[in-house]
């Protein structure tokens, strides 16, 4: 049964050192406010799972929160590298980080399997590709009916899923719209979930009968953080801050400018700072 909480309380209650977590959002609705609160609470030893790690994991890794990253595309989309991730992986700053690398199809299937309560996912994948050589979690399985060889990867199983959504209602049901990525699967594959939302409404109002809704009995904690997906975006509220994604390349390139940015924009701020970005789309 979802409870409405302050962000600091939600992270405190749900996330522990050493947890396996996903902060999902395929370019859209990335839960940056939760990521920043995790940095402020100085969580350590996390295994971070995410298809497209992007800036949110660059920030967490740069602050030493992670020991492992499971991913399928680790870059700043359209811009270049994740410099903090690379510094950790290549130079061990601020700590060494292990990686487990997959393809998008593998991870999408693995989330789906996690939500479906399966132990593993299977799909036509990695054919002629080299990742199976370096990732022991990619195996082959034979179809018992046709003999066709398929790829198998373990299901995603999470201690905590973090997502950002447009709306929750008073009962704690959550509505997502637009590019919905693997967020529904992530929440359903997790023991606990923290959902930040743009607004909490009395009623969702007119909607498609096929709307993407996570019912309150699948969500642990709801926090209202308007603008909480910035610099990514919230469909119907505000657009992606592409200029910031480009600026991040400079900010994250060296350790000093990164640390200074985190200090100013994360450590000295709280979730309310995101409100400045919470414009409703016109």
């Amino acid at each position: 049964m979802a409870v409405v909480q302050k962000l600091a309380e939600a992270i405190e209650a749900n996330l522990h050192d050493g947890d396996t977590v996903a902060m999902e959002g395929f370019t859209h609705l990335i839960p940056f406010a939760s990521g920043h609160e995790i940095i402020r609470q100085k969580r350590k030893g996390l295994t971070l799972i995410r298809m497209t790690p992007d800036l949110i994991y660059d920030q967490l890794i740069g602050m030493g929160a992670a020991v492992k990253m499971v991913f399928s595309w680790g870059g700043n989309p359209g811009v270049g590298s994740l410099h903090r991730f690379r510094d950790a992986y290549e130079n061990g700053w601020p700590n060494k980080i292990e990686i487990e690398e997959h393809s998008h199809a593998a991870m999408a299937n693995a989330y789906d399997a996690g939500a479906a309560g399966l132990p593993f996912a299977m799909f036509k994948g990695y054919r002629g590709a080299e990742l199976p050589r370096v990732n022991p979690n990619i195996k082959e399985i034979k179809c018992p009916f046709t003999g066709e060889l398929l790829s198998a990867v373990p299901a995603v199983k999470l201690d905590v899923a973090f997502i950002h959504a447009q709306k929750a209602d008073r009962d704690g049901n959550v509505l997502l719209e637009g590019i919905v990525g693997v967020q529904k699967e992530a929440v359903l594959a997790a023991k606990r979930s923290v959902v930040t939302v743009e607004e909490i409404v009395d009623d969702f109002g007119p909607r498609s009968p096929n709307a993407v809704i996570l019912p309150h009995w699948t969500v642990t904690s709801i926090v209202k953080v308007p603008g909480g997906a910035h610099p990514s975006y919230a469909h119907g509220y505000y657009t992606r801050d592409n200029a910031f994604y480009k600026q991040w390349d400079t900010i994250a390139r060296d350790r000093e400018s990164f640390s200074a940015w985190i200090d100013e924009h994360v450590m000295r701020k709280g979730p309310d700072a995101f409100a400045a970005f919470a414009k409703r789309a016109v």
Binding site: F71, S72, W73, G74, G75, S103
Partner: peptide
């Protein structure tokens, strides 16, 4: 270290 395969495989 490049971003990786994403959807490519």
């Amino acid at each position: 270290r490049l971003p990786g395969g994403g959807g490519a495989p």
